[in-house]
Design a protein around this nucleic acid. Sequence first.
DNA 1: ATGAAAGCGCTAACAG
DNA 2: CTGTTAGCGCTTTCAT
Lengths: 339, 339
Amino acid sequence: MPRPLPSLADIARHAGVAISTVSRVLRGQGTVAPATARRITAAARRLRYRPNLLVQGMQTGRTRTIGVMVPVDDPFHADMVCGIHDALVAEDFCPLVLWSGPARPPHRTVTELEQLHRMIDRRVDGIILRPVIDDADDVYFHEAIERDLPVIAVDRVLTNAQVDFVGCDDADGGRLAAEHFLALGHRHLGHVAGALFTSTGRQRHDAFLAAAAAAGAACQVAEDPTFSDGEQQACQLLAAAPRITAMFCANDLLAAGAYRAAARLGRRIPADLSIIGFGDLPLAALMAPPLTTVQQHAYQIGSLAARRMLVRCAGDRSAPQRLLVPVTFAPRASTARVP
Amino acid sequence: MPRPLPSLADIARHAGVAISTVSRVLRGQGTVAPATARRITAAARRLRYRPNLLVQGMQTGRTRTIGVMVPVDDPFHADMVCGIHDALVAEDFCPLVLWSGPARPPHRTVTELEQLHRMIDRRVDGIILRPVIDDADDVYFHEAIERDLPVIAVDRVLTNAQVDFVGCDDADGGRLAAEHFLALGHRHLGHVAGALFTSTGRQRHDAFLAAAAAAGAACQVAEDPTFSDGEQQACQLLAAAPRITAMFCANDLLAAGAYRAAARLGRRIPADLSIIGFGDLPLAALMAPPLTTVQQHAYQIGSLAARRMLVRCAGDRSAPQRLLVPVTFAPRASTARVP
DNA sequence: ATGAAAGCGCTAACAG
DNA sequence: CTGTTAGCGCTTTCAT
């Protein structure tokens, strides 16, 4: 039972003034005689006063806390959360990070709605979320947006609602991958796609194919909506189109699977098969050979999203924005000239 | 400006009863006529009422929120935070995750005290923290413990304060590493230590040396308090004691540095030099050769710490406990019989 | 079984 | 310049 912290009343008593005077001094508002102010600040310090943001939040309706529905169990999202954290803290806000989905034993699965309620019950000033695969969009619409809570989607767009979006330029990434292959002389391309019903997967796919088509190069596609087995997908792709010499994978994990597939089929990387990933996870540079990939800059995405949220919290009511953090291309050793 | 959510007063008005009756029904306390209760729950649902935990927190002094001072920027700590999150959420609590230290551009460094205040100002019910290198212990003592806030240290012990500790069995890890080497016939061991002024580094070091000494094996140590350059440390170690055939690194990153050192010196792993890491980061299994290492189970540590915190929050005032999650040994391909 | 009222810590008018 | 007062949404007596 944490003992109650000192209150304004305690300070007032010690300084021999009214509570409202203390409030004025501590908030730097209104006009107070310097001598009185000094007595009050001294008493506050002596009592080690800390403001009660619960009360302040109740009064003003603003808690300086932002709900963040992003898991931290993979490096990409963790990095994004870091960016959000740093940007919020810089403005004296806090992230309240919660996420849904299955938990490891001994814990149980938690629903998105449940977590959303936990945030709302604590009266967060807004919600930054990374949409999950299924159609949980309605939940956000119903629970948050209708309640006039600012919502910002990161990484993937929220399809059923008009809200700000911050992500990376997935299309540009797909284009860069294609152009890299084309510049190396490849004419028979393959793409191991992620889930094509997500905005990220769809755009990487479309842009890669568009750039290939524009150059008159052939391109075969395999889709792996679960992201679970890049090896399997890459094998099928190479079996269906043996002439493929270059493969663009929708993320680095799929690329790792493709490495295994190549090894299984006796194709050397990059001599026989060039591979490009997406994301630049920490493991990408450590793979053998180091993976050529598109860098996403999750930290910047998070930071930008948080700053956008702060603008919304400050009262901005303008139309939803679509903010793209540029991707960069990291050429490493998994790509080479066409054999 | 989020519009104010419906309040008990709104429900009371809609149901034609007094506020206190609504309160009773929603909290399942007291006795209310079934018919009245039904009218009230119906009105609450219709208005989409959500309780205001700020007010509840102000009243009761409990916010069902736990401050978590653990960074999310490396996989080990992120995993720990996952465990904390899942265990807290399972009991309808929330983690408030904040951490100190330098932030990437464009953000600035944040102090531990600042973050601690952010938590206290929001009236968290307790604080789980991963002590940093410097002696910030006093801060916690002064700001939290003296305020009667339960504090739990994870991973590293908080030296200057008597609080619960949850970590892994670092000593056992050091011992396991030594025994593995000894079983493979190694007699000339090396240890690239982390910071020996941390409980983790110290215990891994002490236990490894003790086990080596007990078996009469020689052991040379290099310390790298900054964890910044395993390659450099390993090189020096091998230069100073060329007969070393087995090296225990205080963490996996140092082990990665040792790999580079071995390559530089023309020592093959594991043929000429066996290496053991600590932590089992995701990269460990991906290294070439896959790294033999001690697994720490950060998720379990986090989960256990959170559950301990919930017990403290429930009023447990017993003496500080020291809880150790067992480590496990993961033999992979970086260790072999002595040449 | 239900209502009225006090109070939690603080802000924001409004008086002096 | 400073004090008084009325809430904010809810819990908790105390009446009825």
